[in-house]
């Protein structure tokens, strides 16, 4: 309870402090000669938030880059090294995780977009009331944390030895169809089957997001283009692939990249469901173990550098898209 009180104080200080700071900066600016005032004020307004991202994101990025070239960090023997990069490129654990990350990147965005598109297209044909209810249901998992969703699906995958009644729904269905299972689904690493079981959780979580954006895009497709195709005798499936999809391509790209960025950094689901065991490890979990289980800051930093390098293309795309929007403004 004492923490709740300090929470309230923190809100008051945070918001009040920000207001006071801006008020003072503004008053200060107004005392300056007019010309200086106009020059100074914008920086006073953006200064605090720029300082915040500087401290919490930019400075750490620089330090991480620096640490990736250091060994025995924090000791008097700290020195320059390339060993962390050698580790990054040769460690079998990292290579294995990268394969998993690659599978996640290929299958999760594709799965979520495909399912989201399916729901968006089908629900569009329902009466508005039913459409709304359907979309709410598909969207609901988005409110659930990765840890919560992992627990829900661990319960679905729960397993008991052959001969006992199964209480995990999926295990019960599989054993009902295919006969007894000798081990839990999330431990079967043959063909990385268990990685796919974990990916299913992420698809389940992200389909709603894909659906919301894709549904909005579909509704913006001009109806006369669809009518024209229909008059020409196109089937519904032809209309979907040749008329609708080409017109929502940019939304499909946006949704796919957004989920892809998320998946690149996936941590919670493998951490909670398998702790990265049974060949399901991912790069963000390796980072966590290196940094906080083994305390190897150099190696942990090099893994982060790898993560950043992988996100750079998307950073570039975002900035490019932003500039295009600005040009149209």
């Amino acid at each position: 309870m004492g923490n709740l009180v300090s929470g309230v104080v923190a809100i008051a200080l945070g918001v009040g402090g920000a207001l006071l700071l801006f008020y003072v900066l503004n008053a200060l600016a107004e005392r300056m000669p007019k010309e200086w005032e106009e020059r100074f004020k914008p920086y006073a307004f953006i200064g605090p938030s720029l300082a915040v991202v500087g401290i919490f994101l930019l400075y750490p990025a620089i330090q991480t880059f620096w640490f990736s070239f250091q060994t025995r960090i924090g000791t008097p023997n700290q020195e320059f090294t390339l060993a962390n990069y050698e580790f990054l490129f040769t460690d079998p654990g990292i290579r294995d995780s990268l394969i998993n990350n690659l599978l996640w990147i290929i299958f999760v965005p594709a799965g979520a977009v495909a399912l989201g598109l399916l729901v968006a297209v089908l629900a569009d044909r329902l009466l508005p009331r039913w459409e709304k209810i359907t979309k709410s249901i598909i969207f609901m998992p988005m409110a659930i944390s990765f840890v919560g969703a992992s627990t829900i699906w661990l319960f679905m995958y729960a397993w008991r030895p052959p001969g006992s009644e199964q209480f995990g729904l999926i295990t019960a269905i599989i054993t009902g169809i295919a006969g007894p299972m000798d081990e839990p689904l999330i431990q079967i690493s043959t063909g990385r089957l268990n990685s796919f079981a974990l990916m299913a959780v992420m698809v389940w979580l992200q389909t709603g997001f894909a659906m919301v954006l894709l549904s909005a895009a579909i509704k913006n497709v001009p109806t006369d283009t669809i009518e024209a195709a229909r008059i020409d005798g196109a089937t519904e499936i032809q209309i979907f692939w040749r008329v609708t999809v080409p017109q929502i391509r940019s939304t499909i790209v946006v949704v796919t990249t957004t989920i892809l960025i998320l998946v690149l950094k996936v941590f919670d689901i493998p951490r909670v469901m398998t702790s990265g065991n049974f060949n399901t490890n991912v790069i963000a979990n390796i980072y966590y173990d290196l940094a906080f289980t083994f305390g190897d800051r150099g190696r942990a930093s090099v893994v982060v550098v790898a993560l950043i390098v992988m996100t750079l293309p998307f950073m570039y795309i975002n900035i490019k898209r932003f500039r295009e929007q600005e040009a149209m403004r």
Binding site: F45, L50, F292
Partner: peptide, 29 residues
């Protein structure tokens, strides 16, 4: 709504940081 030098550049910093992995910050912080 304000005009100033470096406006676009500074804003692009924020746009770029939207996708930066948070892992970058944990050890330094």
């Amino acid at each position: 709504w304000m005009d100033f030098k470096g406006r676009e550049f500074l804003f692009i910093i924020f746009v770029g940081l939207l996708v930066v992995p948070l892992q970058v910050a944990f050890i330094p912080l």
